[in-house]
Every structure is written in structure tokens, then in C-alpha cells.
Write a protein that binds this DNA or RNA. Structure first.
Length: 560
DNA sequence: ATAGGGTTAG
């Protein structure tokens, strides 16, 4: 703490230093606790009104510590006349925060106060518009770029290419690109990224091949394009070819494998990354925790947790905390999830969502609902995800009245319109409670269009309660949606079978045969044993995975 | 400046 304080003073008195360089504060202040300590020592030493000191502090909280953006806003509000660099820092930090709207409103404020933007301002504002998919706002900002004469500046133009390529009009992006210098690698990469994000990988690849110059980002753009579409073979080919790799290159590959469900590959990538000496960062660890959560690899998750505690002795970030809660909950260790939750000094909505969802998923409905109430007492605003989880909790607990109460609360008090998942939860809740007619009524009167899942939920509930008539009606609606999921037929077949209506079973079977629907054989994966050791986590090398045969009762429903 | 991660019904 005191070292950091000394560093600020050194920084402030060093007149020759370039403001845009990495200052010690920016490099060393990596968590909100250290940040607050530095701020406190600044106040004690009378540095809190020093403009350069404040600027450094704002940079650290807005850019270096992603979860400290609100702190940055508080600091920013104390400055009477922020300079352009500080405005840009705030817009940049807000654009990369989970709430990019603030970046747009900062830009508006900046205009009202007659602060003239520079070429650095627009890339950040347009990034926010892109993240929000605010096409109209982005186009209005395009007008400002022209107004301030940055259309012919490579920063301004590339920011426009980025915006139009990703969410505006790709033809506009293309035209702007044609006006670029032939060897502007940022323009090439921005356009390529846009085509890749739209799924036009062929066009993206053509551009990539045609680039007169490529840098590391160009390669990362193309690899990302493949990885996000699940084309991991192509991603791998480029990864093997790339002349230089950085932490992003590795992260893209790891996240791609996790996305494609190839968790073993993801872990192999990570091991390889460590072997060649690339330092993993927070994004790496988040992907790995996601892999553990998806595959139920509790022991690896625990080891990641341990190494995280060693790496970040000053406390884990909110994002890592949330990922740990989710991992522990999904791997069945709800106690550890609660421990992480209680140990977090800073929490956000996702933190609460992770634990409320985890508890609901594990059948601890009362505890889940209790925490939701605690959240409301603490005036933390639940979002639509929170309500999905709370409704799951009510559904599993059989709390029909409470569920209805929360469903109404969502709109009346929090102004959140129910989405298809909320409605799905309500149907599930009513269905489980045996209120099948009420569930049917709910679907028919709800404001949004029901989807197949909703009808399938009712169909499943009809099976549980042995209601052939409602099952038939639900199935009629379901099949009317022209989908070919074998589970729908199987469920209906099960309803008939459970009631001994054998000709009904036969009819459904015939329907399945005629439409060419096939029921896949069910199965589950569990860890049964492991052998050997890994250089990373100590004693683990490979899993022997056992395939558990489906239960015998299932055979009744499987096709010939 | 352009590239990377995140919780949600059955």
C-alpha cells in the first residue's frame, strides 16, 4: 500500500513522463481493495485534489480493474473540469463495462459541456454502440465523426468500419474500407472481424488471405471467427501456422474448445500454454472454470481455485468469484459455492444470480428464495435472470402462490417484462403442482408466443399426472410447430403407456416411423477413475470415463 | 483503435 503511494508521488513529480505510458499505479493496482487504500492514502497526504493523481486513479479504476467502473464514476463526478484524456478514459472504461449505455451518455454530456472530442473518443463510443447493437445511435455518431472531420483520420474511419461491419451496414463498412490506406492493418482486421461475426467465414478468410500485412490481431480475429462458429479444426490450423501467439490467441482456442464441448482439448491447450511459458490471465481462468462447470470436473475446479488464491492474494475479482460459485454449484458442491459467495467482499447481480440459481438447481428452494429476499432488502436490483431462477425455486418447492407473487412483482416493481423462460417456469410450476388446466390456460393467455419447450413442459407434466387428454392437446400444439424432436413423441408415447393405452403407443410409434424421427439412445458420463499425473495440477493426467447405460424403464420408450 | 470470458425455463 505504501509503496503504491510512493509510486504515485514519483509519477506526479516526474514531469518528463508520458501520460499515456503505463504508470506504476496502472500496472500495480489490480483490485478494488488496493485502489481504495491508495485513494485513502492520497486523502491523508493531501493528494486527492491533485488533478494528475485523480486522473491516474480514474484510469486505474476505469480501465485496469473492470469491476471498479462505478468507483471511477464516483471519482469522475468530483472533478469540475475533466480533461479530454479523462473523458476518453471514462468512455473507454464504460464501453468495456457490462453497462455500455453509460459510455453513450458520457459522450452526450461531453457534447453538452462543449468538450471537443478527438480521434480517440470515437472508437470507444462506437464500441459501446456496437455492444448495445444501437444502430441508430451509431449512425448518429457517424455523423459526428464527419462533423469533427475525423472521417479521413484512420482512427475515426477504422472505428466506423468496426461499427458498420459488426452491427450496421456491411456495405458502408466496405466502402469506408475502400477509402483506407492499402496497408492499414486495423482497417483490414476490423472488416474481417465484421464478416466473421456475421458468420461469413468464407469472405472473412478471403480478406485474411489478401491482407498485405498481418499482425497478431489479424490472426486472432480470424482464429476467433472460426472458434466462435465451432469450427475448431480450421481454428487449429491457423493456430498452428500463426508466427507469434499471445495470451488472447491461447484464450480464443481454449474458449473455442470449451464452447464446442471439447473440455479435454481445452485443458490440453492450457497445459501447452503453461509449458511454453505463456502467463494465463483472468479470461483464461474464467474459460477453464466454465469447462469444469460444464463437465463436472470438481477436482480440477478446486485446483484452479487454489492457484487463483495464490495468484491474486489481494482478493478475487467479481467475475472470478461468480465463475467459482457457478462451478462449485454445477459440480454439486453447494457448500463450497456458499463459502465463496459469503467470502466475496464485492458482489454484483450475477453473484447473487449464481448462488440463487445454484441453490434452486440443488433443490434448496427455501434457501434460494431466502437469499432473493435478502437481495431485495439490500436494495440490489434483480434482473430477468434472477427472476427465472427464483421462479425455478418456487416451481421446485411447489410454492405456487409465491411464484405468482414474484411473477407479478417482476413487472409491477421492477418493470421487467416476462420472457419465454419466465413463462416456461410458470407452466412448469403449475404443471408440477398438478394444475394442468391452469397451465394450459396460462399458455393460451400469455402475452408472448409459446415455443416448443413450453408445450413440451406441459406435455411432460401431463405424463407425470397421467392426464391423457391434456397430453394429447399439448402434443397437438407441439407438433403444429413443425419440429422433429423425438422426445416429444416419446413423451406422448409414455403418457399412453403409463395409462395402459397401448393402441395410443402404437399410433405414436407409427407417427415416429413415418416421419423418420429416431430416438437417440440415452446415456450419461461420469468420472470413474483417473491415472497418472499432470504437470499443472499435480497428480492428474487423464480420465477414464465410464458410459452408464440408460435405465431399463427407458427401453420401453426407445424405438426398435 | 481492430482480437479473448460471464449466470437464465424442460
Amino acid at each position: 500500500m505504501f509503496n503504491c503511494g510512493v509510486m504515485i508521488r514519483k509519477k506526479i513529480t516526474d514531469k518528463s513522463s508520458n501520460l499515456h505510458q503505463q504508470s506504476p499505479l496502472r500496472r500495480n493496482c489490480t483490485n478494488i481493495k488496493t485502489l481504495k487504500q491508495i485513494h485513502a492514502s492520497m486523502i491523508v497526504d493531501g493528494f486527492d485534489s491533485n488533478p494528475s493523481a485523480l486522473r491516474e486513479l480514474i484510469y486505474a479504476s476505469a480501465i485496469s480493474i473492470p469491476s471498479a467502473i462505478n468507483y471511477a464514476h464516483q471519482l469522475f463526478a468530483q472533478i469540475t473540469r475533466p480533461d479530454l484524456f479523462t473523458w476518453n478514459t471514462m468512455i473507454r472504461g464504460s464501453a468495456q463495462s457490462p453497462n455500455p449505455i453509460t459510455a453513450v451518455s458520457l459522450f452526450t454530456q461531453m457534447e453538452k459541456r462543449h468538450v471537443r472530442p478527438d480521434n480517440c473518443t470515437f472508437p470507444f463510443v462506437l464500441k459501446a454502440c456496437t455492444k448495445l447493437s444501437w444502430v441508430k445511435t451509431g449512425c448518429a455518431v457517424h455523423g459526428k465523426v464527419v462533423k469533427f472531420g475525423f472521417e479521413w483520420n484512420s482512427f475515426g474511419r477504422n472505428a466506423l468500419i468496426y461499427f458498420h461491419a459488426n452491427c450496421g451496414d456491411i456495405r458502408v463498412a466496405s466502402e469506408l474500407f475502400d477509402g483506407s490506406e492499402k496497408d492499414d492493418v486495423v482497417a483490414w482486421s476490423a472488416l474481417t472481424a465484421g464478416y466473421a461475426r456475421r458468420g461469413e467465414l468464407g469472405v472473412a478468410r478471403k480478406l485474411f488471405n489478401e491482407m498485405p500485412v498481418k499482425d497478431l490481431v489479424s490472426w486472432n480475429v480470424m482464429i476467433t471467427g472460426y472458434a466462435k462458429r465451432g469450427e475448431m479444426e480450421s481454428a487449429r490450423e491457423l493456430f498452428d501456422e500463426v508466427p507469434k501467439r499471445d495470451v488472447v490467441t491461447w484464450n480464443v482456442m481454449i474458449a473455442g474448445y470449451v464452447f464446442s464441448g471439447e473440455h479435454e482439448r481445452a485443458l490440453e491447450m492450457f497445459e501447452e500454454m503453461r509449458r511454453v511459458g505463456e502467463q494465463p490471465d483472468e479470461v483464461t481462468m474464467l474459460s477453464l472454470l466454465c469447462a469444469c462447470a460444464d463437465s463436472g470436473a470438481l477436482d480440477i475446479g478446486e485446483k484452479i481455485h487454489c492457484s487463483l488464491l495464490e495468484m491474486h492474494s489481494g482478493g478475487l475479482s467479481i467475475l472470478l468469484g461468480n465463475a467459482l460459485i457457478d462451478m462449485y454449484a454445477k459440480c454439486g458442491s453447494i457448500q463450497k459455492a456458499l463459502e465463496v459467495f459469503r467470502g466475496m467482499r464485492e458482489k454484483d447481480v450475477s453473484t447473487w444470480n449464481s448462488i440463487i440459481g445454484g441453490l434452486a438447481f440443488h433443490g434448496h428452494s427455501e434457501e434460494s428464495i431466502r437469499l432473493f429476499e435478502e437481495m431485495r432488502r439490500l436494495k440490489i436490483r434483480p434482473n430477468e435472470i434472477t427472476f427465472v431462477e427464483v421462479l425455478v425455486a418456487c416451481s421446485h418447492a411447489g410454492e405456487v402462490k409465491q411464484g405468482h407473487r414474484y411473477f407479478n412483482l417482476m413487472r409491477d416493481e421492477y418493470n421487467i417484462a416476462p420472457n419465454i423462460k419466465h413463462c416456461g417456469c410458470m407452466v412448469d410450476m403449475l404443471g408440477r403442482a398438478g394444475k394442468l388446466e391452469e397451465a394450459f390456460e396460462f399458455i393460451d393467455t400469455m402475452e408472448i408466443q409459446p415455443n416448443a419447450i413450453v408445450w413440451r413442459t406441459l406435455l411432460g407434466a401431463s405424463r407425470v399426472h397421467g392426464n391423457v387428454e391434456l397430453g394429447r392437446r399439448a402434443n397437438e400444439r407441439l407438433l403444429g410447430m413443425r419440429n422433429d424432436q423425438s422426445g416429444d413423441y416419446v413423451l406422448l408415447s409414455n403418457i399412453y403407456a403409463s395409462q395402459g393405452v397401448w393402441d395410443g403407443v402404437e399410433t405414436v410409434r407409427k407417427l415416429m416411423d413415418d416421419s423418420g424421427v429416431r430416438k437417440e439412445v440415452g446415456g450419461s458420463l461420469i468420472e470413474t477413475n483417473y491415472v497418472g499425473s499432470t504437470p499443472l495440477f499435480g497428480d492428474r493426467d487423464e480420465y477414464v470415463v465410464g458410459l452408464v447405460r440408460p435405465p431399463v424403464a427407458f427401453v420401453v420408450t426407445a424405438p426398435r
